[in-house]
Computed example of a mutant assay.
Amino acid sequence: MTTSSSVQAVIFDWAGTIVDFGSFAPTSIFVEAFKQGFDFDINLEEARAPMGLGKWDHIQAVGKLPSVDARWQAQFGRAMNESDIDAIYAAFMPLQKAKVADHAAPILNAIEVVDGLKAKGIKIGSCSGYPREVMDVLIPAARDYGYQPDCVVATDDLPQGGRPAAHMALKNLLELQVSDVRRCIKVDDAAPGITEGHNAGMWTVALLLSGNEAGLTFEQYQNAAPAALDVARATAREKLSASKPHYMIDTIADFPEVVADIERRIAAGERP
């Protein structure tokens, strides 16, 4: 295929970026896993707080939240330990595998945007905080909707661990045979994924309204008054700004304009 872009590859996150508007598949399952494993209640806001990490690390991070730690110690008389995390993770995995396909529908315009990138000769990579056994369920479900990236890397595919380290993003580039990280873009809805892109030397794009930080369902997004969207956008922007993305946009539908601007900046000799 003839390449008509100076961008060589785009590495997309999955939930909240390309599929699962609002990133509800992982968050709702975390709530259920804590309840099933220990009859312990966490809320969706707490479940969302460390989103983007590998799921074992995510559970550990939830346990360290001051609000969760205080309730855990009150209920069990001690802090959460690794055996507790293992037990919650064991509850999480079958629940996630059973339900992840229910959240495989693409976010608005995602397929059209990805197909447009492919038409320009841009390679499509992807990585996720999901482990491989969950991705093995999600990949074919997403394919049925028309989403098929050129490469998929799961958080446990590499021994070095997941985000915010650069390993998953760089593994994509090796598999895709990309020659220049400075001509690649990482797109994510959570701060660890943006930091992953920075650590890999890529341009980074954060999504404000389709992902974890806004936490809106698609119906809420569609029906929200402009003022309500402004509030959700400002909340997400505040949380994601700490990871210093090069761009912040509402959803993947706005991404083609970003690609055009990055192409302009590359032509001008700029680097991420």
Rank of each mutant, 00 (worst) to 15 (best):
M1G: 14
S4D: 03
S4T: 14
D13C: 10
A15W: 00
I18G: 07
F38Q: 15
F38W: 12
D39N: 15
I42R: 02
I42W: 05
R48P: 00
V62K: 10
K64N: 13
W72K: 07
W72Q: 02
A74V: 05
A74C: 07
F76C: 04
F76G: 03
M80C: 08
S83T: 13
F92M: 03
K97D: 10
D102P: 04
H103F: 15
H103M: 05
I107Q: 04
A110N: 14
V113N: 14
D115H: 08
G116W: 06
S128E: 03
R132N: 14
V134L: 10
V134Q: 08
V137Q: 09
P140M: 07
P149A: 01
A154N: 07
A154Q: 07
D156S: 09
D157L: 06
L158M: 01
P159A: 13
G162H: 06
G162Q: 05
H167N: 14
M168K: 06
L173W: 02
L173E: 00
I194T: 05
H198W: 10
N199L: 10
A200F: 00
W203Q: 04
A206C: 05
L207E: 03
L208P: 03
L208A: 02
S210Y: 11
N212E: 13
N212P: 00
R237E: 11
A242T: 14
S243Y: 11
H246F: 10
I249T: 13
T251L: 08
E257Y: 01
I262G: 06
I266C: 04
A267C: 10
R271S: 11
